[in-house]
């Protein structure tokens, strides 16, 4: 009884709001915003690079990154913080602590999701699984089959986030391990076709779950000299329902995000921010409520550089 009553009250409030909205727009629901912050290939860089003659001296580190993330979250309502893999390996912290401080720091920063890079196998799958006990975020990955390994059921194929009025689906793809990751480290893990699995997951997220946007965290690499080697460019062009690819592996510093057309002629945005936490990427999306008409039109996204605040 109480529930039904509550439902009726809510319905009345919504109806009232809609009527009031028609007369005087109290809250504009035609537009919604989302801020995405992202990193990749941080490679255990918990502290800034040492102050020596090296070109990265003084850059990076979790304390400064966390300060920046905090200041963005204070200003923006809908924020997603994501990482595209290779969290591990690169500083003595990893050699000594096997990824514990890396995962704990990411959890403290409030990462929403990450995918797995080839170097996240470096301490062994058992170790990655152990370290994930400290993770307050999921590892999203749809093209590794971990059946019969210590990582079985320790990752998820996707995660859906509700941000304001938006529903955002996040999936992830990993790189082919053979010839890259020592065989004793990846064991029985099966690498599955990233295009096929990312497409199927993205279609499910869009068509069945009604996600307004699908993000794919990718450790495939931005692109290679070999034109047929699987990469973010190929994935984006062969995709159908992915809107944004946040990449890694190739440690690519980009002047601006790349845009490719998918199979249906829609825009797919691809971004990557170098490595070692030298950069934090930020993408501010503006969404518009869909109109029933114009559905046949190819979807394009206007890209611009954010003016400094």
């Amino acid at each position: 009884m109480l529930n039904r009553r509550k439902f009726l009250i809510n319905a009345a409030v919504i109806a009232g709001g809609a009527l009031a909205g028609a007369a005087k727009p109290v809250e504009d629901d035609t537009v919604e915003r989302l801020t995405i912050l992202h990193t990749n290939d941080v490679h255990s860089r918990l502290e800034p690079f040492p102050m020596d003659a090296g070109k990265n001296a003084g850059l990076g580190g979790v304390a400064a990154r966390a300060g920046l993330i905090h200041s963005v979250r204070e200003k923006e309502k809908n924020v997603l913080l994501l990482d595209a893999g290779d969290i591990f390996q690169g500083t003595p912290y990893f050699n000594l602590y096997k990824g514990e401080p890396e995962i704990k720091a990411m959890t403290k920063m409030g990462y929403d999701a990450a995918t797995m890079g080839n170097h996240d196998f470096d301490g062994g799958m058992e170790n990655f699984s152990t370290q994930l006990r400290n993770a307050g975020f999921p590892i999203v990955l749809c093209n590794y089959d971990f059946t019969g390994t210590p990582l079985e059921q320790k990752t998820v194929p996707y995660k859906i986030f509700k941000k304001g009025r938006l529903k955002i689906g996040v999936t992830g793809v990993g790189i082919k391990m053979e010839g890259l990751v020592p065989e004793n480290l990846f064991g029985k893990t099966k690498y599955l076709d990233p295009v096929q699995h990312a497409n199927a997951t993205a279609e499910f997220l869009k068509r069945k779950q009604g996600c307004d946007m699908v993000i794919c965290l990718s450790h495939l690499g931005f692109g290679y000299k070999e034109p047929d080697k699987m990469c973010d460019e190929i994935l984006s062009k062969e995709s159908e329902h992915i809107d944004l690819i946040l990449g890694g592996h190739t440690h690519t510093f980009m002047d601006h995000p790349a845009v490719f057309k998918n199979r249906n002629g829609n825009d797919v945005i691809v971004n990557q921010v170098g490595w070692a936490g030298i950069m934090l990427g930020r993408l501010d999306f503006v969404f518009e409520k869909k109109k029933k008409k114009n559905l046949a039109d190819a979807h394009t996204v206007v890209i611009g550089e954010k003016s400094s605040e």
Binding site: M213, G281, D284, F285, F287
Partner: peptide, 8 residues
């Protein structure tokens, strides 16, 4: 919803 624009 559909994304219209992005600022990076």
């Amino acid at each position: 919803y559909q994304s219209l624009s992005v600022q990076y």
